[in-house]
Structure formats: C-alpha cells, structure tokens
C-alpha cells in the first residue's frame, strides 16, 4: 500500500515538521523571495519608490561606469584578501600558542575574544580615535618627546584601508582563535604522541598532520570570515565615513547611499545584485567541492 506508506511518512515527526514551518517560510519568502524581488527591480528605473519602467541592463552599465563603485569593489577585494589571510594566520598562531598549556589560558582567551563582543561601530570609533593624529597614537608618541613622529593612516588615501583592516583584525581574530583552539583540542592526543615518537618537529606536525585534520573547522571559519567581509559597512562608517575622498568606500556603503541618500533604488539594487553574484561565485565552487558527488563522513 504505497499510498498509506507515503501518508505515514508525511505524518511521521509531525511536530518537528510543524515547528520547522516558520523557518521554511522565512527562508523561502524573506530570503529567496526578497532576493528575487531585488534582482527584478534592478532592471527598472525605480527612484525613491520601487516601480518605474523596464530599462534592461542600463543600471548595470551605469554602475560599472561609476568610479566610486569600482573603487569600492577594489577596496573590498584588498580588504577581503588581507582579512582572510591574516585572520586565519594570526588566529591559528594565537590558538597554537595558547594550546601549549600556558598559564592563565582562560585570561588570554578572554582578552583575545573580548573585541568580538563589541559592535563594529564601537570598534570603528575606538580605532578612529587611536589613529587620529590629534589625540591618538601620534599624539601619545609625540608627547613622549618624539616631536616629528608621524602616524596618520586614516587621513592618507594610500593607507586608510590598512587602518580599517587593522581594526577588522582586532575585532575578528579572537573568534577565529577560539574556533581554531576548539579544533586543536579536538585532535587526538595520540596523534601528537605518534609524531613525537617518529621524531617529527612540532611545526611539521602542525602543518602536515594537524591542519589537514582540522579541515571542517577551517571551512566553518572561512564561511564566518567571508560573511563578515562581504557585509563590511558599519566599521567603515564609524572609522572613516568612506574617506578621505572615496578611498575607503565599500560596496555595502555604495548600496546604502544609492538607495537612501541618492534615492535611486534601482541603482542600489543593481549594486546589491552584483554583491550577490560575487557571493555566488565564491559559494558554488566551494559547495561543489564540499558536497558534490560523494556523501561526507
């Protein structure tokens, strides 16, 4: 009786299925639905309110002819690359150091993780003050007697992005460290014993044995870091406001300004669609590698 069997499988775990309905609706209506809506309206000439006429790819042509957008994309690429590399490297090194059974481990872990508890706005403001020449690091060093000391990254077009990256790293590496530490603690003690018996130096054990074993942790960390990179907005707002000039503009800020300052919704939608495309380009190859073909485990 296939009919009854299928009905039974529908009724099976009914409570769980009912409980999942709100999340399923949220996922389909809010995430997928609103995404599609945004993409569709990026082909119109909507201004303050959605609507307007169909203009095809005109918004995208204008977008890629706008220097501010190109600067934003370039900035995000630089920020993303450096953020990814440095937060993984620094996070892993910190975790490896703490994993040496050092004294006051809890204290250090707390100190390193604390910045993550602050919002990007607070982080941005703190680092804006630290890097401000009038009352930050430059003023402190000068008051110690080094009158000609100059350290003014936030008001220098070539350096401002690195000032933002430093603040981003300060904020984010603690979390990476904690994830890495959890991964390191998950490695069986016997692996270490075996490698010690074989006389393999500790750094080699880390790079060739421990890190490959920590692959799932790295994947999780990568997803978290990438998400925080793409949505970079509030840090820049608090720290530099996109300046000096346009030299620390980022795509998310472009989208916000296009939609709510310039009152050009469609242009903002086109920009956010390009951000989505960028995310898809990253996610699809990764998902294919991760889940494609074979079952995990």
């Amino acid at each position: 009786m296939p009919d009854i069997a299928s009905r039974r499988s529908l009724v099976k775990n009914l409570n769980a299925k009912i409980a999942a309905i709100p999340m399923m609706l949220t996922a389909t209506v809010v995430f997928v639905g609103c995404t599609l809506w945004t993409v569709v309206y990026s082909f119109t000439n909507s201004r303050l309110l959605p609507g307007g006429d169909w203009v095809g790819l005109a918004q995208y042509e204008r977008l890629w002819g706008t220097r501010r957008w190109l600067i934003s994309v370039e900035n995000l690429a630089i920020y993303g690359f450096l953020m990814l590399v440095f937060s993984l490297v620094i996070g892993f090194l910190l975790a490896a150091i703490i994993d040496q059974r050092i004294r006051f481990e809890d204290a250090f872990r707390t100190i390193f993780l604390y910045p993550y508890a602050l919002s990007f706005i607070v982080t941005g403001l703190v680092w804006q003050w630290l890097l401000n020449p009038e009352f930050g690091i430059q003023a402190a060093v000068r008051s110690m007697g080094f009158e000609t000391f100059a350290f003014d990254p936030l008001y220098n077009s070539d350096l401002v992005l690195y000032g933002v990256i430093v603040a981003g790293l300060w904020h984010g590496t603690g979390l990476v460290m904690c994830l890495m530490l959890a991964g390191l603690r998950g490695i069986d003690e016997d692996v270490w014993k075996a490698s010690r018996v074989d006389g393999i130096p500790a750094w080699k054990t880390y790079i060739f044995i421990v890190i490959p074993m920590m692959r799932p942790v790295f994947v999780t960390t990568l997803v978290l870091i990438t998400a925080s990179i793409i949505k970079l907005y509030d840090l820049v707002i608090a720290q530099t406001g996109g300046g000096p000039g346009l030299s620390s503009e980022v795509p998310a800020k472009f989208v916000f300004d296009a939609m709510f300052v310039s009152q050009n919704l469609a242009q903002g939608f086109a920009a956010s669609t390009m951000m989505l495309v960028a995310v898809i380009f990253v996610i699809i190859p990764w998902a294919y590698l991760e889940f494609g073909g074979k079952k995990r485990g």
């Binding site: 201004r47 706008t66 501010r68 000039g245 300004d257 310039s262 009152q263 050009n264």
Partner: peptide, 17 residues
Amino acid sequence: SPDTLGQITDLVVEFLA
C-alpha cells in the same frame, strides 16, 4: 534630483581628496 546631487557630491569629494 538627489541622484544627480549624489553624483556631483562623489565627484567633488574625490576631487578635494
């Protein structure tokens, strides 16, 4: 329109920096 003014603002900001 705010859109045009936004473009002018971007240009001026970039020029001044």
